[in-house]
Design a binder for these strands. Sequence first.
RNA 1: GGAGAGGUGGCAGAGCGGUUGAAUGCGGCGGUCUCGAAAACCGUUGUGCGCCGCAAGGCGUACCGAGGGUUCGAAUCCCUCCCUCUCCGCCA
Length: 424
Amino acid sequence: MLDIKLIRNDPAGIRAELRRRGEKAEAALDTLLALDVRRREIVVQVEEKRALRNQVSEEIAAVKRSGGDAQEKIAAMRAVGEAIKLLEADLKAVETELEDELLQVPNLADPSAPDGGEEDFEVLYSWGEPRRFHFEPRDHLDLGMALDMIDMERGGKVSGSRFAYLKGDLVLLQFALVQFALQKLMGKGFRPVIPPVLVRDEAMYGTGFFPTDMQQVYHIESDALNLVGTSEVPLAALHMDEILPEDDLPVRYVGYSSCFRREAGAAGKDTRGIFRVHQFDKVEMFSFCHPDRSRQEHDFMRSIEEEVLQELGLPYRAVNVAAGDLGASAAKKYDLEAWIPTQERYREVTSCSNCTDYQARRLKARAKGKEGGPFLVHTLNGTVVAVGRTIIALMENYQTAEGTIAVPEVLRSFLPVGKTMLGA
RNA sequence: GGAGAGGUGGCAGAGCGGUUGAAUGCGGCGGUCUCGAAAACCGUUGUGCGCCGCAAGGCGUACCGAGGGUUCGAAUCCCUCCCUCUCCGCCA
């Protein structure tokens, strides 16, 4: 959510900024400004009346204490009370409408995010050489089915399309990846967390997934809960309505959770294997940091993601996502894309966003130092390991001519002793 | 799921429907004292919104789990919801 004062004070500037986010983004601006004016008009009126009521109520109390008759004042205040009630109803209606509009306005893009949409990302650089195979490489699903480690067929039978069973050595690989990631992140000051994956609407609004991405979310109607699409949601909401001590910043967490996405509108896209499924597991990092430091924090988090991919030996490229392709909350986003041999291209495996104060304002997540008032923190989130996609990249890049999969050195200590080859 | 108790400021803990933004204690901050510290003593100590002001700030208003209601007036009374605790049942 943007600061309404910012919009009020510089409508033209904000309009120009929002235009970078796309046509739709600036549409609500005039409505927003009108509602803001209207709200303040009503506030002044209602507060004047309340002041009067407070004052006279005290007088009534005084009169009654001295045994006098306050009937006239009471009658007068009855009318004022009615007027207040009407104004309060108006105010509430205007505030609700204002809030609804404001919730749909995306964050302002960072100046360093490229202009344009989905196709206009900037490739920052690449790392690693795609492997040259002396045999025809097979894709992750071929490999997984042959070894009976990925079972989409039965996933479909039991739960529907885009659900999978992961079996055997791939289960071991998953836990090795998770352990590897957790230990690395703990060494860098991130506190491990297993968050709830069912959250209230509040948390979804607070993180900016509602109302914009509502259609992507599994909603449990009977209990008014939502399955999270990323642990970013419960991690961000962890400090909702709180004022953190400034000295504690940055507050860093590394979460591990299953993630659930409806993938509405993705029909026909990435339908093969486990690349795009409704349920997957992810190790996610999250940081609440000082507004002056979020740029550095963002680069720090990206460097961690790179370290992970480098140690796993997966060739990748780093991408700076264009302003028009950012999620609602993000001001800037880096994606890391790993090389997928059978697709002969880079595919997204991690994503790291600086949401500046956009989520913090919605969540009321603030910090406060020894002097000065509270201020909004900046929030950042980044993938450490998206398990499914990392497994795909590992399977394809590390496959052998025999159809087994070699294990990168760094993961071996997290697997049973002597397990250096999966499916063997 | 059933029965009961309760949710008040950073924490603990008072609070009659009417100077209660809220006693008291602890903690925090500032000061006195001290070479310094402790102790003691004095002072201070929330947040949002609006208006005024260049600003420091001032004034107003709202907030005692959340949302409604009753009333001239609600932390105090009523309703709904959420959460916590105790007992019973069930359970990984």
